Amino acid sequence: MVPSTVVYVAAVPISVIVALGLLRKWRSRKWASCVSNTCLRGKTFLITGANSGIGYETAKSLVRRKGRVIFACRDIAKAKEAIALIRKEQPLGGEMIPMQLDLSSFESIEKFVEIVKAGFHKIDVLINNAGVVVPLNQDLKTKEGFEIHFGVNHLGHFYLTNLLMDLLKRATPSRIVVVSSTLHERGNINFDDLNIRKEIEQAKKKGGSSRHNPGYSNSKLMNAYFARALACNLRNTGIDVNLVCPGFCATNLFRYSIKWYHYIFMAPILIAFMKTAKQGSETVVFCATDHSIEGKTGKFYRDCAEYNSKYNFDKDVETKLWNVSEELVKARKPL
């Protein structure tokens, strides 16, 4: 006969696991899925950072529906590997084209756009998905010398989107999907220090990495301001611009700030609340393809529904950020 203490010791973790599983199932009922299954043959989608995480799952969904997808990735080898995996699963799926794009380099962006314009007559949907999260104490910069989050997450996509505008206009009705985050609500835009030198110097003094990265939050706020301004500028042109928050997802985006032991301590929270990359991609696919939102622009979506941001947006800040971004792209260096 098995001692009661052994039964008790075994029952506790099993009960916890079952409870967490049930909690996750209950939570996941709120994580909406894109139910649209319309054939996308003849449509061209361009996704930045399509080789992994949410970008990869988004590409997979679009290819399954016969869409043509351009994998705009910094590492062309990883883009080809991702395409090979999808093709193995979906031998009859849409066309996939790997292309090299380094959003930390204006020269790379320009070369990329030149090749895209030579090979494609139109772009139906641009999905600005790629992003970086790097500990501030590393003080990484783009090729032009901008702080890495500001330079890649905001300026790189700002420049890329504007250079591709002709191809998007040819495809109208077309869409631009900007992947942001509710972390934008923790962001701040200081025009006297867009490269956050103060925060970086403080991070260097402290050492290590913090789970809250103001560089990332600020860049997500800039994404939101950019999308709002772009939607306003393109109103009545046939190009819809919308923001997406994928939610808290299990991707490698926060690989620098979340260590292996965090997964042990935070396992119950992660199991109950963290989405898979596939679940996180659902709202991106929804905003890229669903006919129910055609003509709607300047909106923020989460779980395939409109989301009301808690951030108090300022039209003057929106206009100034656009103008300053144009000046910085033109100058090709921090001012």
Rank of each mutant, 00 (worst) to 15 (best):
T5F: 13
T5W: 11
A11S: 14
A11Q: 04
I14A: 08
R24P: 05
W26M: 08
W26L: 14
T38H: 12
L40K: 03
T44G: 12
T48Q: 07
A50F: 12
A59R: 01
V63L: 04
R68S: 15
V69C: 01
A72C: 01
D75N: 15
E81W: 01
K88M: 15
M96D: 13
M99V: 04
V116A: 13
K117W: 08
L136Q: 03
Q138G: 04
H149D: 03
H149Q: 00
F150M: 04
F158K: 10
L160M: 05
A171V: 11
I176H: 02
V177Y: 10
S180V: 05
E185Y: 05
A203V: 02
R211V: 15
N218T: 06
L221M: 02
L221R: 04
M222N: 07
A229E: 15
L230Y: 12
I239C: 03
P246T: 00
C249D: 09
N252C: 11
L253T: 01
R255Q: 12
Y256G: 08
K259P: 06
K259N: 06
K259I: 02
H262C: 06
P268A: 07
I269W: 06
L270Q: 10
V284M: 04
V285Q: 02
S292D: 05
Y301M: 11
E306H: 09
E306M: 13
Y307S: 11
K310L: 13
K315C: 12
K320V: 08
L321G: 06
V324S: 03
A331K: 10
A331H: 12
L335G: 15
